[in-house]
Each structure stands twice: as C-alpha cells, then as structure tokens.
Amino acid sequence: MSAAESVDAQSLGRVSLVSRYTVFALVAMAANLVAQKLSWWIYQDAYGVLLSVCVGTGVGLLVKYALDKAWIFRYEHRSVAHGIETFARYVAMGLATTAIFWATEFIAQALFHTEAARLSGGALGLAIGYFAKYQLDKRFVFA
C-alpha cells in the first residue's frame, strides 16, 4: 500500500469512526431526552425537573457506554472487576461533561421557562459534552 493509499484508508477510517460516534451520540441523546420526558410525565412535582434530568442522564450514560465499548473502542474486559473499573472510569470522565450538559439545560430552563427550551438546552449541552467525552474516553478509559 502506498503512502497516499494509507492516508486515504486512515481518512475513511476516521470518517467511519466520526459517523458512528455521531449516530451513537444521537441515539444516547434521544434515549436521555425520552427518559426525561417519561420521567416528567410520571412526576411533575417540586423536584420533577431535577428528577427527570437525573433519570435521563442515567439512561443516556448506560446506552452510550454500551455503544462506545462495543463499536467505537472495541474494548474487551479482562474480568468482571476490570469491567467495573472501566465503567467507573467512564462515569468519572462523564462527570465534567455532565456538568456541561446540566448547566446548559438548566440555564435554558431558567432563561425561557419552557420544557422545549430546557430539552433544547439539554440537546446542545449533550452535543458539546459528547465531543469532550470522546477525547477523555480515548485517553483515560479505553486506552
């Protein structure tokens, strides 16, 4: 394979990776936002928004972890303990990105006082957070 062919193959590999990551981020975002909506329908009392954001975050985290592990990083655990450790690192890397997501969502809620604004803010925060999360996961979780 020539150097030019190698660069083309790497570019195609990157495009495929970015495409998969984007689709999986969208799937996890949808799971997050649907879980928030369902949670909100069930409980709309004093802490309803906070509960819905927490439920959505948990659902999105589990969906994204499963997809990233299998299809982005093609990562295999050596044991159950190693799997738990890897998931714990994944969650830890997600703390900062979750802060971005939550801040964006709650700022949108505070500014516009509508569910549509809150969910739109959540979607924006998730998009920013997922970009940062990939970089962290590549270096510290699935390395």
Rank of each mutant, 00 (worst) to 15 (best):
M1P: 03
S2W: 07
S11K: 13
V15K: 05
R20I: 01
T22Y: 06
V23I: 13
A25E: 03
A25D: 03
N32L: 10
L33E: 13
L38G: 13
W40Q: 11
W40D: 03
W40T: 07
W41A: 08
Y43P: 01
V49K: 11
V49I: 13
L50C: 00
L50A: 10
L50Q: 06
L51R: 02
V53Q: 12
G56N: 04
G58Y: 04
V59S: 07
V59I: 15
A66N: 09
A70R: 15
F73G: 07
Y75H: 15
H82R: 13
I84Y: 10
T86V: 13
F87Y: 15
R89V: 08
V91E: 03
M93L: 05
L95T: 12
T97W: 12
I100E: 01
F101W: 08
A103T: 14
T104P: 04
T104I: 00
E105G: 02
E105Q: 15
I107R: 05
H113I: 00
H113S: 07
T114E: 10
A116G: 02
A117C: 00
L119W: 07
L119N: 09
S120C: 09
S120W: 01
G122N: 07
G122A: 06
G122D: 03
A127R: 04
I128N: 06
I128R: 02
A132Q: 08
K133T: 10
Y134D: 10
L136D: 07
F140Q: 04
A143E: 11
